[in-house]
Every structure is written in structure tokens, then in C-alpha cells.
Write a protein that binds this DNA or RNA. Sequence first.
DNA 1: CTCCAGGGCAGCG
DNA 2: CGCTGCCATGGA
Length: 286
Amino acid sequence: MRIEWKDEIPLQIDLEQTASSGQCFRWQAAGGGAYRVPNGEKCLAIAPGSVPGRVRVDVTAEEFARDWADYFDAGRDYAAICRSAQEDSFLCACAAVAGGVRVLRQDAWEMLITFTISQNNNIPRIRASVDKLCRRFGHPVAKGVRGCPALYSFPAPEALRDVKKLKGLGLGYRDRYLAALADGVCTGAIDLDALKKMPYAQAHAYLTGLFGVGVKVANCVCLFGLGHADAFPVDTWIKKILDAEYREGFPLEKYPGCAGIVQQWMFYAVQSGQVELKKEEKTPRI
DNA sequence: CTCCAGGGCAGCG
DNA sequence: CGCTGCCATGGA
């Protein structure tokens, strides 16, 4: 069985960059630059189009607009964000190799669990744990195609309540965080529907009140799961970048409503090794 | 062996 | 408030 392409859509995106940008851990490479993208009960096949700025998909343009435009943040003008970074030579260098990264709007519950797993962890291990989680507790949402294994849904909260069932997934000490979050959603103590309606500051405060969720993970959930593009997660990589390039602090005010997007460009560019940081000049001891 | 990875918690001062 | 040790796990 192979992928049946149905339509070509205008969308500025580099699929390979986005797939390896550390925001989504379940995209599946399908060969020839194509990817299978699971979200909820649906799965989209997507590939570069006949010209830059377009993508091929295995749904009609109408179905894409209905089910996927929001996921891909299709309404945002990324070129305009890039232009607003013109005076910043470091950011321009990052955009040159990472400007094709789009910040996806993924499922909030999935992002909450995924980025709780991400703490003090690395990207390959996060991907492995999420994959095992879906295989064990999810159900198939897309069949295998020419070598690519089947894709499974992200587990519902009910499946993750019992911490004893979370062994063997490589979660380490994080397993009890997941179980507590899942139980909270099941009992109603955690209200994800209310969370989705909150403005950024309120959502961030709500999230940091949850056991196992700190400032950084809360920002990742806001940015990748709640559509708050002004969230600016600071992890070990961004810390290094701020330390080397922005000693006076990052100028968040220059990127109103989209700081998280330039953050993703910097993260991907440096984490992938394509942009190097300045050597730390030894502060002269007085 | 040590250090590190998209950190957070608990226990201090 | 800020600081420190600890937390599982696996790869370099």
C-alpha cells in the first residue's frame, strides 16, 4: 500500500526541520521527504510540493482547511517574523538554517504528558518513551505503509492513572508525575477544557501548579499545545544561547506575540549544530 | 569512570 | 525569594 496524494496546499514549511525541531515526537518519516503526522484520531500524509511554499497532502484542500490548518499554524505570516529579526545577526543566522520550522498547535493533553517526560531527558529518549506509551496504551489510527509501521493514538488519561503500569517505558522517576496528571484529569481536579480557554499568563500559572510541571514545561505546553506563541521556554540550550549571545537578556519586546517562534529557530539551529555560539570570553577577574 | 539530556521538587538559608 | 542535592535512564 502506498500514499495517495490528493491535493497541493500553499504552506511555508520545511518538513524535515519541523520534524526534528524537538516539538513533535511522533511524526513518522515515510521516505522521499514525506511524513505521516498523527493528531488525535486522524493521521495526515504530507510531502514537499512541486515548488517551495507548497506541500502535497493525502486529503482534499477542504479537508486540510478543516482538520489541519490550525495544527500547522497556517494563518501566521512567518516571513514577516523573519523580517522583524533583520537587525539581529545571530537570529538571522538561525533563521537561515531553521526558518522552515513552524510551531505546531498540537493536542494539549499530549503536550502536557510529552513535555513532562522531556524533563532532564534527551530527544531520542523522549521519542522512544512516547512511542512505547502509544503502542502500549493507544490504538491504531493509521495502517503501515511500505515499511513504515502502523501509527497509534496518544493514550487517553484513563490509561495512565496507574503508575505500576508505566514501567518499562524508560520514564524513570517521571512515571509518578504522569500518573498524577492522568488521575487529576480523570477526577476533574485538572480541567483541560478550562485550560484551553485561558490567556497565556493564566494558563502558565495553572500549569505550574501541577505536580511535575515547572516553569519550562508549562511554557512548552503553552507554546506547542495551547497556541500561545508568545511563550518562551528556556531549557539548557536556550540558556547557553542567552549566555553566549544575549548577555543583556533576550529582546522579547521585539517579537510581540511570536517570541516562541524565534525561540524555536534558535533552539533548532544551535541544537542541530548548524549554528555555533560565541566562545565565552573569560570575564576578567579584578 | 564522569557528564549530559527541551527540569522539577524538597529542603534548606 | 535563591540555592543545592537528588531524582531514573541510557548514550557519549
